[in-house]
Amino acid sequence: MSAGAGSVRWRGAIDCKRWDNGYVYRHYGPWVWGSATSTVWCDLGANVIAGYYIVG
């Protein structure tokens, strides 16, 4: 995930859903500044169902 330029600290987060049992969980990327990229992913065997920007 990438955000616009600036001096805002933020992180990406995604909700993941497992294929085998339907369990939904959230993974977080690292905190970054401005237009840097916060990388986050689901485990093998799961799909991304929602994505978020968290400002902090």
Rank of each mutant, 00 (worst) to 15 (best):
M1V: 09
M1G: 12
M1C: 14
S2A: 10
S2G: 14
S2E: 15
A3V: 00
G4I: 08
G6C: 13
G6N: 13
G6A: 02
S7T: 09
S7F: 08
S7E: 14
V8H: 10
R9L: 06
R9D: 11
W10N: 05
R11S: 07
G12F: 04
G12K: 07
A13G: 06
A13S: 13
I14K: 08
I14R: 05
I14P: 11
D15F: 01
D15L: 04
D15H: 08
C16V: 00
C16H: 06
C16T: 01
C16M: 06
C16D: 09
K17W: 02
K17D: 02
R18W: 13
R18M: 10
R18A: 15
W19I: 05
D20L: 07
D20G: 13
N21V: 05
G22P: 12
G22N: 14
G22Y: 05
Y23W: 11
V24I: 14
V24K: 11
V24R: 12
Y25K: 08
Y25S: 08
R26L: 00
R26N: 05
H27A: 10
H27K: 11
Y28T: 03
Y28W: 13
G29L: 00
P30L: 01
P30W: 00
P30H: 04
W31F: 14
W31R: 09
W31Y: 09
V32G: 02
W33D: 10
W33F: 03
W33C: 06
W33E: 07
G34T: 05
G34F: 03
G34Y: 02
S35H: 10
S35L: 01
S35I: 00
A36R: 15
A36H: 13
A36S: 14
A36Q: 14
A36V: 00
T37Q: 11
T37H: 12
T37R: 11
T37E: 06
S38R: 06
S38L: 07
T39H: 14
T39L: 07
V40K: 03
V40Q: 02
V40I: 12
V40D: 10
V40T: 15
V40P: 13
W41L: 02
C42N: 08
C42I: 12
C42P: 15
C42Q: 06
D43Y: 09
D43F: 06
L44A: 15
L44T: 15
G45M: 05
A46Q: 11
N47E: 12
N47R: 10
I49N: 09
I49W: 00
I49Y: 03
I49R: 05
A50N: 12
G51P: 06
G51I: 01
G51N: 05
G51V: 02
Y52R: 09
Y52D: 03
Y52S: 02
Y53C: 01
Y53I: 02
Y53M: 05
I54L: 10
G56K: 04
